[in-house]
Design a protein around this nucleic acid. Structure first.
Lengths: 154, 154
DNA sequence: AGTCTAAAACGGAATGGTTCCGGATTCTGG
DNA sequence: CCAGAATCCGGAACCATTCCGTTTTAGACT
């Protein structure tokens, strides 16, 4: 997703285009494929807009989610992560370094079937595989993982 | 999963069969299909073993996860939930009342393909649909959801 | 350019499920 | 029955995230 497209979307929705938001958009466009967490977005966007606060970063992220620009991947015990790729895909999540890889694979679950048999109406989904990425398998014995991104202990 | 099977598994692994653990096993066997959270497990198990502490509840849950007896569904902003159904399935998660329904559907993603194209080795997965359950759709306009289970605000 | 108002940004304090810690208790093998 | 290990317990700590009261800013309209 391009910077211009996001700005256009914000205008359509009647949101103000502010300097903090532009800084965050820049980070999302540049580092979006990393599936960055809030602290990464904050750190990088602060370089572009010095007075940026963490709470504004969170507020902006929420605003973007609410308007369908990004999607949140929520975790417990780790930082949440955010992605701009809204096409249906599987996220491959490395348990060692935290890297997240998009994997395109057609998932054929008929939503009508789900509704018919359970009465459940689907609004969104979450497809994830956990495991180890290529790099981490290579270095499984070596000392420290390369990634940032661990919340609490263990 | 039956109580006896779980106890057997714990013995195999060399874990002590203690009164707090039996209380928690009882709750998991009885309420497992609710995908209970830690606070529910704690509250119910405490009725059976009065001196049970919350930290023991968490420790026991972790022990059970480590030995493949239950699986954690981690969320942020909400309580984590736990399930005893370890067969591959999709969890239908109601965003209004927190109910979680198991939906059996064959998901055909070739793990070898994933490994071949990305180098990523899969160890576990997470398949989730979010939306609204039958009851909540019926009562969408009415006041309060029936479920327990919300962590923070909004 | 100046004014007004709602939206947005800010810092700092609060939140709360979960984890950690140190000491007490219980289990198990000998 | 005893020692050592496993487990349990309460309470304090953790920390990403949210909330709150105040200040600043964007955008529309003079």
């Amino acid at each position: 997703m391009t910077k211009e497209a996001i700005i256009e979307r914000l205008k359509e929705k009647g949101l103000n285009i502010t300097s903090p938001r532009l800084a965050i958009i820049d980070v999302l466009v540049e580092d979006g494929h990393f599936h960055p967490g809030a602290s990464h977005i904050y750190r990088e966007a602060k370089k572009r807009h010095r007075s940026l606060s963490l709470s504004t970063t969170y507020a902006t992220i929420h605003e973007f989610i609410r308007h369908g620009i990004i999607k949140a991947l929520e975790f417990d015990g780790k930082e949440n992560r955010f992605e701009g790729n809204l096409d249906e895909h599987i996220n491959l999540i490395c348990e060692r370094c935290g890297k997240i890889i998009d994997y395109k694979a057609p998932i054929s679950v008929d939503r009508l079937d789900v509704a018919k048999t359970t009465g459940f109406v689907i609004t969104s989904n979450r497809w994830e595989y956990y495991g180890y990425c290529r790099d981490c398998i290579k270095n499984l014995n070596s000392a420290t993982p390369t990634g940032e991104l661990r919340k609490r202990h263990s």
